[in-house]
Design a protein around this nucleic acid. Sequence first.
DNA 1: AGGGCTTGAATTAGTCCTATGTAATGAGCT
DNA 2: AGCTCATTACATAGGACTAATTCAAGCCCT
Lengths: 241, 241
Amino acid sequence: MSTPGRGLHGRVLDTLGPAITAGEYPPGSVLRTDELAQRFEVSRSVMREAVRVLESMHLVESRRRVGVIVRPAAAWNVYDPQVIRWRLAGADRPRQLRSLTVLRSAVEPVAAGLAATHATAEQCAALTECAIGMVAHSRGHRLDGYLLHDVAFHRLILDASGNEMFARLGDVVEEVLAGRTHHEVMFHDPDPAAVTLHVRVAEAIREGDAARAEHLTREITEGALKELDILAPNGRPATTG
Amino acid sequence: MSTPGRGLHGRVLDTLGPAITAGEYPPGSVLRTDELAQRFEVSRSVMREAVRVLESMHLVESRRRVGVIVRPAAAWNVYDPQVIRWRLAGADRPRQLRSLTVLRSAVEPVAAGLAATHATAEQCAALTECAIGMVAHSRGHRLDGYLLHDVAFHRLILDASGNEMFARLGDVVEEVLAGRTHHEVMFHDPDPAAVTLHVRVAEAIREGDAARAEHLTREITEGALKELDILAPNGRPATTG
DNA sequence: AGGGCTTGAATTAGTCCTATGTAATGAGCT
DNA sequence: AGCTCATTACATAGGACTAATTCAAGCCCT
């Protein structure tokens, strides 16, 4: 998906990016441009372009007379879709998935509340259709079809919120939902309660009931969080001991 | 602030980035690398690096035989701190400020709730100190000192939430608060009610009362939204008429 | 003698340039 | 209409040179 390696420098990034975000080079590690160019068998021009991109993501810092220094994870642009994909493909995927789900739990309810006010008639219709689709695919291990409608549903809400920052989180939500379906354990059919909640959210938005839309969506995201806690007890920050 | 022009390509970006995000080149506009290199009086190599960075921000798309195409705003990486700064410096600053404030209103209450559970003793102490600092600077047009503590306060909450995605929004919050203080009208002292709310949030977090911390923070962010509506009636998406 | 400052040599990224490859476009032809 | 091919811009390669920063040797002052 997305844009896998458009050009030679992209090919380099597809290897270097995941390696760095996976912590393969500890913070402070020094890479040399020439050395990297040799390793990847590309010209220095291409390697420089790749380094520039990594630099714009705050993954590395280029300093004269020193080299290309790997920056600590705290500096990374963790909202960059590319960085998100790289990290989700890496080892600390569970922790990542949890971070993003917590973000969802903050954003989506508010987005749903706004959507109740701002959604167009077309968006309301599409939303209802998605909810119906989820119901239709919720039994009999039709997980792929269910996922499709689920993603579309949440994307619609984020778009209908009318807030640009929310809308741009659609990719993140898709990544999280897809990850949950494909990688984590989900042998059983979706939780019927969750499916019902989606239907009710669509209703609330159609009726323009912002408070109810927000509340119901909060139930959905909180359910997603609980599910994460059960399936992947790692990845959550240490609470007490 | 940040990193103004680290290298020649950075200098180019400081001009091109704001120009593109300001909509100076409508979506679909075609720029030629050679032409840009001439205009900015840099080599093609440097210009190519700059284009690569813009490309990683999804501001432009480079196609053979065509040129460098400006992408529609819907594709931009609006969470990239650099893009945020560029857009805040541009013409649609009010709309931008509102989008970001809505984002704050979604994220910060949840972050505060988490902080109530996760904050260390040091973080609680720092939080209280910030609140005290805000009180101390809330009268007599000590806006700069007030802002300093205000930013530190909200940054602390985001950090103490223990969620990486929240923590990385500290820069955004700083940008919004600084923007409100410096550019928008704020001739009068800060709203005493808001100051009090900050003190009470610090209390709630120190006492580990997540629900109260979340609720009080929601009051803060909702106040910020209302203030925006009063001061800058533009920038909000058309509601009804 | 020890500590701090200055100086200079080594190193690595930064920049520029030129040559060549390559793919997508659009004109022109069949 | 469909195909061919020349054009055109980006893509890649690799060399030469610049400039900045680090590190250490050497100096001076205390």
